[in-house]
């Protein structure tokens, strides 16, 4: 800081003194408290889980739910939404790019069932995450 800057800062401090505080008008507390008495009592926000804890708990529960449903018997899950998503994903037959995988002797890959469930789970979790982050940002 050069000499001129120091002089300018000192001059400014002389004008903007911390002790020069504008005080609230007389009787302010009394008038405010009259309004406060008319208000309902504030209460602690009830909830077993606080917002930062909710997101990982919900995510973990969803993952567990998806994994359990993936291992349950096929007869129980034929009409479940998860099964429908999984069936849809399984029915998608996208041609592989020519020249990369269509070489003679390329590996014939088979996607196990669990992978389709995981893809569906990741997709749904991404949607949940987006929805929850929007919700909590708005609340904040």
């Amino acid at each position: 800081m050069n000499k001129q800057n120091i002089n300018e800062a000192d001059k400014l401090k002389k004008y903007l003194k911390a002790e020069r505080i504008e005080k609230a008008p007389e009787g302010f507390t009394y008038r405010l408290m009259k309004n406060i008495q008319a208000e309902p009592l504030p209460s602690r926000r009830q909830g077993i889980l606080k917002p930062p804890v909710i997101i990982p708990v919900i995510s973990f529960s969803l993952i567990v739910l998806f994994l359990i449903s993936a291992f349950t018997s096929s007869s129980e899950r034929t009409n479940s939404p998860i099964q429908k998503i999984s069936d849809y994903l399984g029915s998608l037959k996208m041609p592989l790019p020519e020249g990369i995988f269509s070489q003679p002797g390329s590996i014939n890959m088979h996607m196990p069932d669990i992978i389709t469930y995981l893809i569906a789970a990741i997709f749904m979790l991404a949607l949940f995450d987006r929805a929850l982050s929007l919700f909590f940002r708005r609340e904040k």
């Binding site: 504008e22 302010f28 507390t29 406060i36 009592l41 602690r44």
Partner: peptide, 26 residues
């Protein structure tokens, strides 16, 4: 206040009103 004694809020108001007023006024 959270335990139901709303009058306790007046101590908080008295404590912070001048600084809060100064900020709003400036």
């Amino acid at each position: 206040v959270l335990a139901g004694n709303s009058n306790s809020y007046s101590y908080i108001v008295d404590r912070h009103k001048n600084r809060a007023f100064n900020l709003a006024f400036r």
